[in-house]
Amino acid sequence: VTTYKLVINGKTLKGETTTKAVDAETSEKAFKQYANDNGVDGVWTYDDATKTFTVTEMV
């Protein structure tokens, strides 16, 4: 189990959250659901070296 981080650069929501998951794909699903639940829709990137997802909304 690995800890993954999500950085949110939204128009109205900014911040970070973490989750523990067995792999990046599992954490990505959880993070995308979290973003969707909070009305964040944007461009996703992933940095495997830091286990960090970033979602950026276009303004």
Rank of each mutant, 00 (worst) to 15 (best):
V22I: 12
T17E: 05
T50F: 04
K14T: 10
K5Q: 05
V43P: 03
A35F: 03
D48Y: 07
K14F: 10
I8Y: 06
G15S: 12
F53K: 00
T54E: 05
E25H: 11
K51P: 00
K32C: 05
V1Y: 14
D47S: 05
Y46Q: 01
T26I: 06
T17P: 03
K11A: 13
Y34G: 00
K32H: 09
D47L: 03
K14V: 10
L13G: 09
V43R: 07
T12H: 14
A24N: 06
V55N: 02
K32E: 03
L6V: 03
D48P: 14
K51A: 05
T26A: 13
K5T: 14
K29P: 01
T26K: 06
T12R: 07
V22H: 12
T12D: 11
F53L: 02
S27F: 03
K20D: 14
T54V: 06
E28N: 04
D41V: 14
T26V: 08
Y46R: 00
K5Y: 15
K14L: 07
D23V: 02
V59I: 12
E57P: 07
E16K: 06
G15H: 13
F53T: 01
N36S: 14
A35C: 15
K29S: 07
K20P: 06
D47A: 03
E28C: 15
I8N: 00
A24I: 12
K32T: 04
I8D: 02
E28S: 08
T3Y: 07
E28R: 11
T17L: 15
T17I: 15
A24C: 14
G42L: 02
K11V: 14
A30L: 15
D41R: 11
K32Q: 08
I8T: 03
K29E: 07
K32F: 05
V1R: 07
V40A: 03
F53C: 03
T18D: 05
G10M: 14
T3M: 11
G39L: 05
T3L: 12
V7W: 04
E57F: 06
K51V: 03
F31A: 01
W44E: 00
V43E: 10
K29L: 11
A30W: 15
T54Q: 05
V55T: 02
A21W: 03
T19P: 02
G42M: 02
D37M: 12
S27V: 14
V7H: 05
K29M: 10
K29C: 08
Q33D: 08
G42D: 01
Y46S: 01
D48A: 13
E57C: 06
N9G: 04
V59L: 13
G39W: 04
K29F: 07
W44Q: 00
K5S: 05
Y4C: 04
T12W: 13
S27T: 05
A49R: 10
A30T: 14
M58C: 13
Y46N: 00
M58W: 13
T45R: 06
K5D: 02
N38T: 06
T45G: 05
G39P: 01
D23M: 03
T54P: 00
K14D: 05
S27Y: 02
T19H: 14
F31V: 01
Y46L: 01
K14A: 07
T18H: 10
D47M: 03
Y4K: 02
G10Q: 05
A35T: 07
Y46G: 01
T56K: 04
A24S: 09
D41M: 12
L6R: 00
G39E: 06
A24F: 14
T2C: 14
A49N: 10
T12Q: 10
T56W: 09
D48R: 06
G39Q: 08
N9E: 10
T54H: 06
N36D: 12
D23L: 04
D47P: 00
T17S: 08
I8H: 02
T26P: 01
T17H: 14
K20E: 14
A30R: 12
V43G: 04
F53G: 00
W44F: 03
T2S: 11
V59W: 12
T54S: 05
V22R: 10
V40T: 02
K51Y: 09
L13S: 08
V43Q: 09
D48E: 13
Q33I: 10
T18Y: 15
V1A: 10
V1G: 10
T45L: 06
N36Q: 14
D48G: 06
A49Q: 11
V43L: 11
Y4V: 02
D41K: 13
V59T: 12
Y34T: 03
L6S: 01
K20Q: 15
G42K: 01
V43M: 09
D47W: 03
T50E: 06
Y4G: 03
E25T: 10
T2D: 10
V43W: 09
A30Y: 15
K32S: 03
A35Q: 01
T56M: 07
A21F: 05
Y34I: 07
K51R: 10
G39R: 05
K14H: 10
K51S: 04
V43C: 10
S27E: 01
N36T: 13
T12E: 10
A35H: 03
F31T: 01
F31M: 03
A49L: 11
Y46T: 00
Y4S: 03
